[in-house]
Amino acid sequence: MEYIKRNRIDKISAKISEEIVKDDLELIRACYQCGTCTGSCPSGRRTALRTRAVIRKALLGLDQVLDDPDIWLCSTCYTCFERCPRQVPVTDIIIKLRNLATQKGRILAPHKSLTHLLIDTGHGVPINDKKWNDLRESYDLDPVPPTVHKYPSAVKEVQTLVKSLGFDKLVEYKPPVNTNSKKDEKPEKKEEKATRKGRKSKIKK
């Protein structure tokens, strides 16, 4: 039975490409499948990512393009786009596909935690250990940089934006105990109040 493979494309639709076209990426339709992108792709040389095939699947509306991990293997180097003879914005299309995959709940677990870091601290790579403050100090710098780390109100601004755009829901962010937001009705609400430091220490481990 293992030799029987009844794979076929039984439905072709424009539903994915239309989403892409909507985002000013109509050049996806200009793709003539030459393979310049795949041959230029440093990821494709070591992974199953075939940028040309990604574009093809998107054009045919195959859901598989959003479900397969391939689109997450692109390092967004833009070499494909620079060389594409039809100027297809391959990288930007992959990014858009990732947006659609995220909406389907296909975001990868480590990426999801990264978004929670951003929402918690305003940094994708935050200072989450005192050694980083010490390291800064050893180079004659203020132990806390003049970024969101220094201005709690700035973190709140980022959080306001995130909520305003519904990003927190998209990435299933559950706030830790949060004194700043009264509207929060999440289970953690019951826990005792934590200062920003308290939240940071939570991230630390």
Binding site: W72, S75, T76, I95, R98, N99, T102, I107, H111, L114, T115, L118, G122, H123, G124, V125, P146, T147, V148, K150, Y151, S153, A154, V155, E157, V158, F167, L170, V171
Partner: peptide
């Protein structure tokens, strides 16, 4: 009070 840019490979992808 500047934050993460936010990083193009990750946050733009989401």
């Amino acid at each position: 009070g500047a934050s993460c840019c936010p990083a193009p490979g990750v946050f733009r992808s989401f």
